[in-house]
Design a protein around this nucleic acid. Structure first.
Length: 477
RNA sequence: GCUUCUUUAGCUCAGUUGGUUAGAGCGCCGGACUGUUAAUCCGUAGGUCCUAGGUUCGAGCCCUAGAAGAAGCGCCA
């Protein structure tokens, strides 16, 4: 291949007077003369100037929307107003033609729903290329944050023999033919003859295994795909999503909350510092969309201002009990505006969380010490014997982004909770062993990767921040 | 799983009480254009009105069933 200069470098450190080659996809071809070329290395495009005396007419005709071309020529200061430099093309090579009459995308605004159906082309658009560059940035920042703080990246299994992870419906994994599975005497499927010799699922969480890591390596985190077979039809749920789960020994619920807040702010700050062009475009895009909306439906702050506000202010921290008190004293409660009841012992509904975050505190809120009956078996019992050391971090517009807890390290209390909640001990002997032999107080949380990307990009639907979303009834691409 | 909404040209939509040949903007295609910034201007083509059944002299419009998509809820991250 001939040498090419990436457009990010052309724009960042322009070599005026040098002859260079750029390769990329045509974003616009104006006046039969100006090509806006993008190669994905940056949000921005470089302008390639086509001189009809140098480039033959047949080639010029093939420069269509999203065609792939290579252009070689001198980089000069631009005579036009919209850009600093431009490439005066001596030669243009068509690398990939595009038949405009058949290509589904257009050089204009298109709906997210339509582009979702064309997921193999949507990354070429301004919006999705910005989102997916930021997605990469968030993934990198996560690894950098934990690495710099001495955490070990731990790979927990995707295939699990346990169905007691306590986080929802699982997808069964098997090599049996659907209508030809061996059965036992009582007619049920005999998984002892299956590939793994037992019933297996794909994971809903790496937390329990991460606890093994924490009680050996001290500080670990997992970052990988997780799967939930719940038929959740919302803009915040996926059947396949990525989750970050740090787990730390010698930590309590307060250390856990400190980590969650510091970590969230670090990620957001990293994107603000490293992806300003992409963020600026997404910010402007939201403002364009909201122009036609009623004032009360618009965001209270612009996207970038929201991100800055979050890193500059402390998260609100309250207990579940305090949250109930605040809600009971709230206007919507007194006026009967809440659809669901507010009472100690009942889980907070989305409408309650949104009111607390968006109307009352107007910033991220960490709620802790939830009633034991609405939380998982592994969460540490508080001294009141009524609440557990659990915490949820709630973000404006999205709700729960992080859910975590201090884990129950006391063997007898853990076994009691497992019995009360019908979790079978025999499958989790290894988990109980962690308390029997060299146990320690420890805590951790799970953060939904796509949810933090939703917050940072300001996108409305979680299906638009993962390249190929898996949702009930949809596994295209 | 529940509630509500949507489905008409490639895209975004309009389509009056049920009435002849279903419209617009954008895009595409063809043409013009040597400084454009979603370029602009001129012209052409483009339709299984989501599917199946029904009511009616007559259905894009009414009825029944189904499909797909979206928003909200529940579950959660």
């Amino acid at each position: 291949m001939g040498k090419r200069t990436e457009i990010v470098d052309v724009l960042k450190t322009p070599q005026i007077g040098a002859t260079i080659t750029v390769k990329g996809w045509v974003r616009a071809f104006r006046s039969n003369r100006f090509v806006a070329l993008n190669d994905g290395s940056t949000f921005n495009t470089v302008q390639v100037v086509i001189d009809p005396d140098k480039i033959d007419e047949a080639t010029i005709k093939r420069i269509g929307f999203h065609a792939c071309i290579a252009a070689t020529g001198e980089l000069v200061e631009s005579k036009g107003a919209g850009q600093a430099v431009e490439l005066m093309a001596d030669t243009v090579e068509i690398l990939g033609d595009t038949d405009g009459s058949a290509y589904p995308l257009q050089a204009k605004k298109q709906t997210m729903e339509f582009l979702r159906e064309k997921a193999h082309f949507r990354m070429r658009t301004n919006t999705f290329s910005a989102v997916f560059r930021i997605r990469h940035g968030v993934a990198f920042a996560i690894n950098k944050y934990f690495n710099d703080k001495g955490y070990y990246y731990m790979h927990t299994p995707i295939i699990t023999g346990s169905d007691a992870e306590g986080a929802g419906e699982m997808f069964r994994i098997t090599t049996f033919e659907p209508n030809n599975a061996p059965t036992t005497e009582d007619g049920s499927i005999d998984y002892s003859q299956d590939f793994f010799g037992k019933a297996t699922n794909i994971t809903v969480s790496g937390q329990l295994q991460a606890e093994i890591g924490a009680l050996s390596l001290g500080k670990v985190y997992t970052f990988g795909p997780t799967f939930r077979a719940e038929k959740s039809n919302t803009s915040r749920h996926l059947a396949e999503f990525w989750m970050i789960e740090p787990e730390i020994a010698f930590a309590d619920i307060y250390d856990d909350m400190d980590l969650a807040e510091d970590f969230s702010k670090y990620i957001i700050n990293y994107i603000l510092e490293n992806y300003p062009d992409d963020l600026a475009f997404l910010d402007k895009r939201i403002q364009d969309v909201e122009k036609n909306m009623k004032k009360e439906l618009r965001r209270p702050m612009s996207l970038i201002d929201t991100l800055k506000f979050v890193i500059d202010n402390d998260f609100a921290r309250i207990t579940y009990t305090e949250a109930i008190d605040i809600l009971k004293r709230s206007k919507p409660y007194k006026k009967g505006k809440f659809e669901f009841p507010v009472d100690w012992g009942i889980d907070l509904q989305a409408e309650h969380e949104r009111w607390l975050v968006e109307k009352h505190f107007k910033k991220p809120v960490i709620v802790r010490d939830y009633p034991k009956d609405i939380k998982a078996f592994y969460m540490r019992m508080n001294d009141d014997e009524k609440t557990v050391a659990a915490m949820d971090v709630l973000f404006p517009g999205i709700g729960e982004v992080i859910g975590g807890s201090q884990r129950e390290e006391r063997l007898e209390k853990l076994r009691k909770r497992m019995q009360e909640m019908n979790v079978h001990e025999d499958e989790l002997q290894w988990y109980l062993d962690l308390r029997r032999f060299g146990g320690a107080p420890h805590a951790g949380f799970g953060l939904g990767f796509e949810r933090i990307i939703l917050f940072i990009t300001g996108m409305a639907n979680i299906r638009d921040v993962i390249p190929f979303p898996r949702t009930p009834g949809n596994a295209e691409f």
